[in-house]
Design a protein around this nucleic acid. Sequence first.
DNA 1: CGATTGATTGAAGGTCCTCAACAGAGGTGG
DNA 2: CCACCTCTGTTGAGGACCTTCAATCAATCG
Lengths: 244, 244
Amino acid sequence: MPANDNEALAGLIRKLERLTDLNADDRRRLLALPHRLEKVSAGTLMVREGRDTSECCLLVEGFACRHKTTSDGGRQIVSFHMRGDILDIQHLLLPLADHNVEAITEAIVAWIPAAEIRRLAWERPNIGEGLWRDTLIDASIFREWILNVGRRDARSRIAHMLCEFVTRGVAADLGPGDGFELPMTQEQIGDATGLTSVHVNRTLKALRDDGVIAQERKRMIVRDWARLRAIAGFDSAYLHAAGA
Amino acid sequence: MPANDNEALAGLIRKLERLTDLNADDRRRLLALPHRLEKVSAGTLMVREGRDTSECCLLVEGFACRHKTTSDGGRQIVSFHMRGDILDIQHLLLPLADHNVEAITEAIVAWIPAAEIRRLAWERPNIGEGLWRDTLIDASIFREWILNVGRRDARSRIAHMLCEFVTRGVAADLGPGDGFELPMTQEQIGDATGLTSVHVNRTLKALRDDGVIAQERKRMIVRDWARLRAIAGFDSAYLHAAGA
DNA sequence: CGATTGATTGAAGGTCCTCAACAGAGGTGG
DNA sequence: CCACCTCTGTTGAGGACCTTCAATCAATCG
């Protein structure tokens, strides 16, 4: 397994430290969380809608998304995730999964018993506060996504998705925001923005032609961050501490 | 003031009892929460995006919504609320409001100091668990709304919004679901579904012509619940305990 | 009772979708 | 190591759904 145990939980601690104050004891308890590491390939479903869950899934490395489907098969991605994110923290208190969690690249995840995290949340108020705040920021991002698919056109919508991804990636130490690995396919961008992959393709081409972005393979370069922001109408306030 | 103090907090207790176990002491502490009642008219903004907040707003009577706007003025409603709902519980841990909260009918709200609720959440684990679970259900509803505006056509989208409203209304003791007061205008339905009021009008007419619903004034009658559900692709699982 | 807000309907147009074909990249197995 | 296959990206043509603009009607309210 590529990541050792300490590294696996260190990502979670780094994230919580952006959200709350942790003392030495808090950190010790977090590092002592029982867990098992798993390497998964792109496309693996870590959580299935409707299933009972007793473990929480921490993303140690790689990228993942959460998605839901309509009764006639339409698929909607509701969030993207990167290292340090707990992918299904809501299962601490809601045992039945209401959506799927899928790896979109090869990834390493750590499975942690929900009961252990729950206990820690109540015994260490700092940790509980951080975890609760994390779920509240999740909810804030969901609200922004409702606005994104509901009220922006394809161009702004995709630009906004890119802005958010860059901003969160920088916060998660994935490197500088001007050039970065874009882990999702155009089909997945479509599923996240409520568009078809065909229209995503045309819209990305337009953004390239306008000199706002550039692409080579899966690598994306932001040529003009100010313009991308303006097209998206992006204001990072909704990310709260998570995107600071 | 139409509602007395006990009635005001009783709605919150009823709601929390659907989400967690409360003992006599929990209930006593909840009833002892300091608060002030306010009667507000339709259109009143209780919370403004970007503002610092130190009080939480409990909806005692009437209806409200939360909404956001794009930089060029597009407006998106991200949730509707009814009595018993805490309208901005995220401000317990996120001081800066990332959206607006607005009364859509005349309403009675109770303002409760956020610090008092926060204290109760940590001192009474049952209450904390119930409140956290409530915010997680909120998030689940947001996810469903992303799916709704992202992947359903106007007809299913509006049908889904109606199904959710009815289901939550029944759970909140607002009366039977077959005939009920629809508090929002067609413009607000449009803002919630990412459509224009014109298209909402045409779509509602189609649903009426098909015998699925009927309307008189602001009153809506569900003529064929099975068909409305089918059109919406509605499955109440995402409401978790809140819509049981 | 005039004024304002919300509902209703028509006509024209635009954004995005569907269907379809093809190119390129990457992975697999013989 | 190359042939093959699959997945992803790309582009074109036509059409559907929803929007925009506009006018009219109904209901509510000061």
